[in-house]
């Protein structure tokens, strides 16, 4: 296990070193994504010129939702970069190179790529999140910080599960599953605002079927001492990490199923 982490660290540092050959390009992409995405948040700020609060959520509170959703999604995307490029890995036959190595295939996919250029978006999320934490009316004690940490972890795990599921489809189709963008990019956009603004059917889908609301909405209700508008039990915020982990678990099972198919159909 420890040896595995060490190997992962080695492979990642190799990734970073090889990308540092294009340092300027990395800096440019980082800076441009960071600033470009800040403009997206600026549009949220502009909306607040026309209202005092969004369904009872102040700008700082919405910034908290927005920042945490962006940060978790983008960070997850960086960590699962290998799955992001996985359709290409399969198409170019590079997955064969993985299967001839004496290591777990999924581990190797994780370690095969680290798109550090995507840090720009994560940094933007963290930046907005940081401002929100500083600005929000919350007494930050151990319980609050722990809840925040668990919430971000849950978000990363949730989106990682989705990215892996999307990538696993490339065992069947050439392109992977583009419709997955609805849940990944769409999902992080959805939870950038309070769930209470959406139609009831959308809420139900994303609370009870796909646990998107647990990525940051329920933990935020806890942190901000808000009453659950849907009247669900008070332990909901604490289900965040377990439910998000279930998504990751589902993705692992699905992956296992997909790789079997690869080995029996060939590419």
């Amino acid at each position: 296990m420890i040896e595995g982490f060490r190997l992962y660290a080695r492979l990642m540092s190799a990734q970073i070193r090889s990308q540092m050959q294009y340092k300027m390009s990395f800096i440019m992409e980082f800076a441009s994504t960071f600033m470009g995405m800040i403009l997206e948040f600026a549009s949220v700020v502009v909306l607040f010129i026309h209202m005092p609060a969004l369904d009872g959520w102040t700008l700082a509170e919405v910034a908290f939702l927005y920042g945490s959703a962006e940060f978790a999604m983008a960070l997850s995307q960086v960590i699962t970069s290998g799955f992001d490029v996985f359709p290409e890995t399969v198409r170019l036959g590079k997955f064969d190179s993985i299967l001839i190595r004496p290591r777990n295939a999924m581990f190797q996919v994780f370690a095969s790529e680290l798109a550090i250029r995507r840090f720009g978006r994560a940094a933007q999320g963290l930046f907005v999140l940081g401002i929100a934490i500083w600005w929000m009316d919350v007494d930050w004690g151990v319980a609050e910080w722990s809840m925040l940490a668990v919430m971000i972890l849950g978000g990363v795990v949730f989106f990682a599960g989705l990215f892996i599921i999307g990538a696993t489809f490339s065992f069947w189709t050439v392109e992977g599953l583009e419709a997955m963008n609805i849940l990944t990019y769409g999902g992080s956009t959805m939870v950038a605002y309070p769930m209470s603004i959406y139609a009831e059917w959308m809420r139900n889908v994303f609370i009870f079927i796909i646990p998107l609301a647990f990525v940051n909405y329920y933990p935020s209700l806890f942190l901000l001492n808000k009453v659950d508008p849907f009247g669900l039990p008070g332990f909901m915020p604490f289900l965040s990490l377990p439910l998000c982990s279930l998504v990751l678990l589902a993705s692992l099972v699905f992956w296992h199923f997909g790789i079997k198919r690869y080995q029996s159909t060939g590419h």
Binding site: A14, R17, S18, Q19, Q21, L92, G93, K94, S97, I100
Partner: peptide
Amino acid sequence: IGVVFGQRTNLWWDL
């Protein structure tokens, strides 16, 4: 075992 694919490298492209 060792494997070499003539058409494709098993090495890290940028390293």
